[in-house]
């Protein structure tokens, strides 16, 4: 490529990156400014005297609704809900995918199709029936209820992921293990799971993002003690009493988004690799 072409390419890339990063910059710099500086200065200027005061307040003392304990308790709620929900839905999805590909039974194709439909059901449709169900089982307004909802809703996706991955694993591998004397779970655990790393990453990232970022299920099904951080952030930002503290709002928003960012940074490279992974050659 010649010089001019290369220059154009880089110019395009840099401006795109700038465009994408600008809001992040505004959030970050605003969160490090005092309220006075925000009122006087411009939106995109760097903070004169950076302060972490807004971060501390967002984490520990800001009021969301009537509680003034910052995001901390809600952040913990989110962790308590997300981690089990991600792990359970991923593991069950893996088992589903394994059974649907290597232990086919009468009607397994129909079952898979039916599961796929689950990917296309909008959240709003299941709100009312789910609320009745949770109430009937006695886990409404609790973190268990939320975990249950997210596991059920996520299964369609995780099953799809694992099914498409395992369909590339030669059936002879499972047959060989059966002849060797391994049963359903032994084969899953000793043969399939060790080669499922990439798709596990995809599933974990996908599910973590979905569940952590969810607002609707959180606002509907959580009790006041089990609200996830997304709901708390909304309450915090929309509190109508007192002065509007943009710096605290920004810090709170970043805190709420941090775990998903972290998951992408740590496991992001596996995401693309897992999505494009083909058959496993034995």
């Amino acid at each position: 490529m010649n010089r001019a072409g290369r220059f154009l390419l880089y110019a395009a890339l840099v401006s795109t990156a700038f465009y994408a990063l600008a809001p992040m910059w505004v959030m970050l710099s605003t969160s490090l400014k005092t309220l006075d500086e925000i009122r006087e200065g411009s939106l995109i200027a760097a903070p004169h005297a950076p302060t972490i005061e807004p971060w501390l307040k967002a984490w520990g003392t800001a009021c969301s609704g009537v509680r003034c304990e910052g995001l901390k308790p809600f952040f913990l709620n989110s962790l308590l809900m997300t981690i089990p929900a991600v792990l359970i839905s991923t593991l069950v999805g893996a088992l589903n995918g394994y059974a649907l590909t290597h232990w086919r039974f009468r009607g397994s194709d129909f079952l898979f199709t039916a599961l796929l439909v689950g990917c296309f059901i909008p959240f709003q449709v299941v709100l009312l029936p789910m609320a009745r169900l949770l109430g009937a089982v006695g886990i409404s307004d609790s973190v268990f209820g939320l975990i249950f909802v997210h596991v059920v809703y996520g299964l369609a996706f995780t099953t799809l992921f694992f099914r498409n991955y395992y369909i590339g694993v030669p059936g002879e591998l499972v047959k060989a293990a059966r002849v060797d004397g391994a049963g359903f779970f032994t084969i899953f655990q000793r043969i399939l799971l060790p080669i499922s790393g990439p798709i596990f990453m995809v599933c974990v990232i996908w599910q973590f993002t979905q569940i952590w970022n969810d607002f609707l299920f959180g606002v509907v099904f959580a009790g006041s003690d089990s609200q996830p951080v997304t709901v708390a952030l909304n309450n915090l930002v929309r509190t109508s009493t007192g002065v509007k503290e943009y710096n605290v709002d920004m810090a709170a928003a970043i805190i709420a988004a941090l775990p998903t960012l972290l998951v992408y940074i740590v496991a992001g490279k596996y995401f693309v690799r897992g999505l494009t992974a083909g058959a496993v050659k034995g």
């Binding site: 030669p170 002879e172 591998l173 047959k175 060989a176 293990a177 059966r178 002849v179 060797d180 004397g181 391994a182 000793r190 043969i191 060790p194 080669i195 496993v280 050659k281 034995g282």
Partner: peptide
């Protein structure tokens, strides 16, 4: 009888070696 109780061993076309072992 399930395969494991038939006292047989099998060699496959794709060899079917366990990739992680």
């Amino acid at each position: 009888l399930p395969p494991k109780d038939r006292d047989i061993a099998m060699v496959f076309q794709s060899y079917a070696l366990y990739p992680s072992m």
